[in-house]
Design a binder for these strands. Structure first.
Length: 713
DNA sequence: CATAGCCGCCTTTTT
DNA sequence: GGCGGCTATG
């Protein structure tokens, strides 16, 4: 086997695959065959006598894990190896060691909308107004703290200014609410696991034995909590293999810390480092563009992109009038490609924000082009799906008040706000959960007879469902669907209702799929699994449709032809990444573009629109500065003779003698080259303009001497 | 208690 | 532009 594996690999890949003892860092550029290296390595470990049971490979998404499992299977290797994501691993650990972690094993996993409810309640409990302490802000702050492994108590100890003190209160209250509901948010999964491994040496040792060989993919996107978990697990045996590419780190905003991968050598002094710099995916022209772009990042380790494929076609950057024209042109272009025999599932379109999918979708419908929007979590956010899942959640975790309140009157069964408030008051008075109070509703004096009767019917129904909790999920889901009255109420609800029924049937089908695939299907496991579903998990590579997705979702994928749309200032780089003093955020946006570009094998088509509808307003855009960093001569494009002078700006220029400049605009200076206006101090003819040039330096110049020319595209 | 309609809020990326 | 929450009405 060693030989058969070996001959398909390059020298550096072979080194990474067969150096099977001790710490190993694989610095892998895009398209370097990294996934293949990991799967071959798993096979090589097993070949060398390691039990599959002792191998743990962690990937970034469930999809990636599934793919790796399949690949390893074809090498005849994967049976028994634990291949999963960080979050799934944490769920598994927390369930097994719930006692030591101080939680209940049947916890609910709370997504952002559940979190929003809890944080609102927490802010209210602290008697703070939601203008200064907006729920989104608070959640963000708490998430950052959790990713840094700072729990509510220790944060409170260190809080010294007004804001921190208040945040600490909210944090404590939020955690209190979650624990009462027996719920964990995504960050809790990581934090609680990290603390468990820190605080319980026994558990840490047991898990170290269980997972004697640890492989972690996309190490550049681990946050501190994940880093701590990985380090703790591997501290027992040093058999850690991390792979990643600092240039593809795109989750800094989520706490990912490039330093984790940069510091690997000092964390594991005897680590072997293997670089995979050859690119087997993209044409030389695509790589040249990617390389030229990423070179503008100063905060990076130099890495080569060595092409192995021929030059290929040169890279096109095209400007369009607005987003609809752009979308239409993309659709037309795709038709041309399919005319040449390209299949639809070899084509993908990437954009910065989900809202951009709309114009594309409309164009595709009009052009009758089949497409899939890769947005897995959306399905689970639908009202009817959440409703049915809420019934199922209650059966597993009765403390989940959020789920309970959701279904107590869905479908309408005459249990209104007044009734639930009375139950809630009773629960608070007797210090019991809402569910406990519900069961005792007969004893609640404030409730009228009619209400008590309705509640009794509801409770009885849940009791009936609970009898079927063990075993397969799909039959139970089906039963709940009909007996809860959901099916009937939707059937009466017109075309929207029919659509909802279809969605629920799809959910039941997916549950049946789970039943088939799971070793030991259980409702708890099913619910926890689908909570960890990601957008990419919905991507169906086999279906013959064009894939539409965000640049983030594109990570780890590859396509024959890639379109990247809306490469405009404010969108890519996104305006919200503009806030920092440093360039870190801008560099991350650049990496995001880099990731998108390097997904393409043969065709790469980049575009921007001169006008775009943003929040309902038709606005003039500015081309992204990144477009000037590709090393292509795109400024010459789209400037045909018929290019009409912008009549929208006419009234502006007529009233001004000095050219008007505004923040964000792109300008050219004779000596310093291309730059972007950071600040414009309007003082008539003495106006001062601050420009950040692409060379990296920032200069303040007096406008009348600066001799700037507008760069307009 | 249910429903419809209106107002005001947010609005990047995601496990 | 879209959703959630609130209010007024039946």
């Amino acid at each position: 086997m060693h030989n058969t594996l070996s001959q398909q690999l390059t020298a550096s890949q072979r080194k990474a695959v067969f150096h099977t003892e001790g710490p190993l860092l694989v610095l892998a550029g895009p398209g370097s065959g990294k996934t293949r290296v990991i799967t071959y390595r798993i096979a090589a470990l097993i070949e060398s006598g390691v039990r599959p049971y002792n191998i743990c490979a962690i990937t970034f998404t469930n999809k990636a894990a599934e793919e790796m499992r399949n690949r390893a299977m074809t090498l005849g290797a994967s049976a028994g190896a634990y291949i999963s994501t960080f979050h799934s691993l944490c769920v598994r650990i927390l369930r097994q060691y719930a006692d030591q972690a101080g939680i209940h094993p049947n916890f609910s996993i709370y997504d952002s909308s559940d979190q929003a409810r809890c944080i609102k309640q927490a802010v209210k409990n602290c008697e703070l107004d939601t203008t200064n302490f907006s729920p989104a802000r608070m959640l963000d702050a708490i998430s950052t703290l959790k990713n840094k492994l700072i729990d509510a108590e220790s944060f409170k100890t260190g809080a010294d200014d007004f804001f921190s003190v208040k945040l600490a209160e909210i944090y404590l209250s939020y955690q209190h609410i979650l624990s009462e509901l027996n719920g964990l948010d995504f960050d809790d999964l990581l934090m609680k696991t990290a603390f468990l491994l820190q605080d319980c040496p026994d558990v840490c040792r047991q898990l170290g034995d269980r997972f004697g060989y640890l492989l972690i993919d996309e190490y550049q996107d681990t946050n501190h909590a994940q880093y701590s978990i990985a380090k703790a697990l591997a501290s027992n045996h040093n058999n850690i293999c991390a792979t990643g590419d600092p240039d593809q780190s795109i989750y800094r905003w989520r706490g990912a810390d490039i330093r984790n991968i940069m510091a690997f050598e000092s964390d594991w002094p005897d680590a072997m480092i293997v670089k995979l710099e050859e690119n087997f995916r993209s044409t030389a022209n695509i790589l040249a563009v990617a390389d030229h772009l990423i070179a503008f990042n100063r905060n990076r380790k130099l890495k080569k992109l060595i092409p192995t494929k021929p030059e290929g076609e040169s890279i096109r950057v095209t400007g369009f009038e607005d987003e609809n024209e752009e979308a239409h042109a993309v659709a037309q272009h795709i038709k041309e490609l399919t005319g040449k025999g390209v299949s639809l599932n070899d084509i993908a379109i990437f954009y910065r924000v989900n809202a951009q999918s709309r114009a594309l979708e409309e164009a595709f419908v009009r052009s009758k082009l089949p497409y899939q929007i890769v947005r897995g979590v959306e399905f689970y956010r639908r009202k009817e799906i959440r409703d049915l899942l809420a019934y199922l959640k209650i059966l597993v975790n009765p403390d989940d008040e959020i789920a309970l309140l959701r279904i107590i009157n869905t479908p309408a069964r005459g249990i209104g706000k007044v009734t639930t408030e009375r139950i809630r008051a009773y629960a608070a008075r007797h210090r019991i959960s809402f569910f406990e109070a519900l069961k005792k509703s007969n004893n609640i004096d404030s409730l009228p007879k009619a209400a008590k009767a309705k509640l009794a019917v509801f409770i009885n129904m849940l009791g009936q469902f609970a009898k079927d909790v063990a075993g397969k999920v799909a039959p139970l889901a089906e039963r709940v669907f009909t007996e809860s009255g959901l099916a009937e109420s939707l059937r009466a609800g017109g075309p929207d209702g029919l659509n909802a029924i279809e969605n629920l049937n799809e959910l039941i089908n997916s549950a049946a799929e789970y039943d088939k695939q799971a070793e030991q299907p259980s409702l708890l496991d099913y619910l926890q699994q689908i909570s960890l579903f990601s957008d990419t998990d919905a991507y169906d590579a086999a279906s013959d449709r064009v894939a539409l997705m965000t640049l983030h979702a594109a990570k780890g994928l590859e396509f024959e032809h890639v379109f990247i749309v809306g490469v405009e200032d404010g969108l890519l780089p996104h305006e919200r990444s503009n806030s920092g003093e440093d360039d870190e955020q801008l560099e991350e946006e650049r990496r995001l573009f880099f990731v998108g570009i390097t997904r393409a094998k043969t065709g790469l088509y980049i575009s921007h629109a001169r006008y775009r509808t943003v929040r309902g307003q038709f606005l003039r855009t500015i081309a992204s500065e990144f477009l000037f960093e590709l090393g292509t001569d795109f400024t010459e494009q789209g400037r045909d003779d018929d290019f009409d002078v912008d009549d929208h700006d006419d009234y502006d220029s007529s009233s001004q003698t000095v050219p008007r400049f505004k923040k964000g605009q792109l300008v050219r200076h004779e000596k310093f080259g291309l730059g972007r206006i950071k600040e414009f101090l309007d003082m008539g003819e003495n106006s001062v303009i601050t420009i950040k040039f692409n060379s990296g330096q920032t200069k303040s110049l007096v406008l009348k001497y600066a001799n700037l020319s507008e760069v307009d595209i």
